[in-house]
Simulated assay, not measured.
Amino acid sequence: MAQTPADFVLDNAIWFSLTTGHSDIAEGDGRARRYPIGVSPLGAIQDTSDASFDALAALLQPNEEIALGSPTEILPTGGLEAFARMTLKQMVRSSLSRPIPEQHVVPLGTADVADMLTLIEITKPGPFRSRTHELGQYFGIRVDGRLVAMAGERLRPVGYTEISAVCTHPNYRGRGYGRGLVETLVRNIIDRGNVPILHVEKDNQAASLYEAVGFSIRQTIHLIGLRKPNAVSS
């Protein structure tokens, strides 16, 4: 089956996010790009040529790490070392009807970063740094002033917006907070004319939550963590 433009974008979601929706903050050039270090550990290459890996290595400091995603396994060159691999399910919202948002949801911003980082440390939903909230809208649920659940937007490849950092404090699970946050984000993304997507670890049971709110599995994405050793010069 021939690959459609949508397939090409979603197969290379990080690259297209860095060259379209987040091109204004991306670092790099036509062969390799990355997010600023305080925003996200994600990066991407145009292709898997030696020249692209060399360009990626030039963006990194010695011992610095970066993560790339691809539908196929990545075999790095340019002296970069693979130190971690993870398999993700890429999910797309198949129905574009607008859900009813959770009433207890509040927007989160710079003033909430300390609380967001505290919740991230407890729940560990994935990489989240001090400026990650700048990538898109973030929402949370507070109970007696305490941030107990949150979710937001990360990748923005043309035509799509990724939902990320969905997490709930262990003491407050089972109350529908995660679903309410995801549905709020879905509504906002659809209102902007984009299609919601997300990525979840292969064996993460949260996939059933996302299926319950209209997401379906599109494909497997292989995430690889790369490190630039001291011996590689930029």
Rank of each mutant, 00 (worst) to 15 (best):
T4R: 11
G69W: 00
T161A: 14
S95Q: 08
Y177E: 00
C167K: 00
V113E: 13
S208F: 14
D24A: 06
L80T: 12
T87L: 09
L56V: 06
V200M: 02
T132R: 02
V232G: 10
A165Q: 06
A26E: 11
L209M: 14
A111C: 06
W15D: 11
G109F: 04
C167I: 01
M91Q: 10
L10S: 10
K228G: 15
G159H: 09
S233P: 09
A58L: 08
G38H: 07
P101L: 12
E27V: 10
I74L: 00
F8T: 13
H199Y: 05
V166D: 00
P99V: 04
L155V: 03
Q219D: 13
S17K: 04
P196D: 13
V113K: 05
Y172M: 00
E27F: 01
F16T: 06
P41F: 04
G145P: 15
M116C: 02
D191C: 11
G21R: 02
G176A: 03
V232Q: 14
V213I: 12
N63V: 04
E121Q: 15
E121Y: 06
A165G: 12
Q103V: 10
E153D: 04
I163Y: 10
L181N: 02
A51W: 05
T72R: 08
T110A: 15
G136I: 07
S70H: 03
G43R: 02
P62C: 10
L181M: 04
D47E: 08
H133P: 07
A114F: 06
L181Q: 03
G178E: 09
S23R: 03
K89F: 09
T72M: 03
L80P: 15
D115E: 15
V186G: 03
V158L: 15
R85Q: 08
N204C: 02
D7W: 09
A67F: 11
E121T: 14
E134L: 13
Y160A: 08
V158E: 13
R93G: 07
C167N: 00
H104C: 03
Q103A: 15
R175G: 01
M1T: 07
S52E: 07
S234N: 15
T20A: 11
N12C: 12
L135M: 10
V106G: 08
I190C: 08
G174K: 03
E201N: 12
G159I: 12
G140C: 05
R93C: 15
T220A: 12
I217Y: 13
V166L: 02
R175V: 00
T87N: 07
F8G: 05
L96V: 11
R175W: 00
T132W: 11
R154M: 03
T77A: 02
G109T: 04
G178C: 05
A6G: 04
L147W: 04
A26W: 05
S70N: 06
A111V: 06
A212K: 15
F128W: 04
M150S: 09
N230K: 10
Q137C: 10
E183T: 11
G38N: 13
L68P: 01
V143S: 13
P99T: 05
G193W: 08
G79N: 10
E73G: 01
V92S: 11
I74K: 00
L10T: 06
Q61F: 05
E73C: 01
R33A: 09
G159S: 07
G28M: 04
E81W: 08
V195Y: 02
A6V: 08
Y35G: 05
D11C: 04
V186K: 11
V105F: 12
Q103E: 14
H133M: 12
N194T: 09
P229F: 13
Q3S: 14
L80S: 12
S52L: 09
S70F: 01
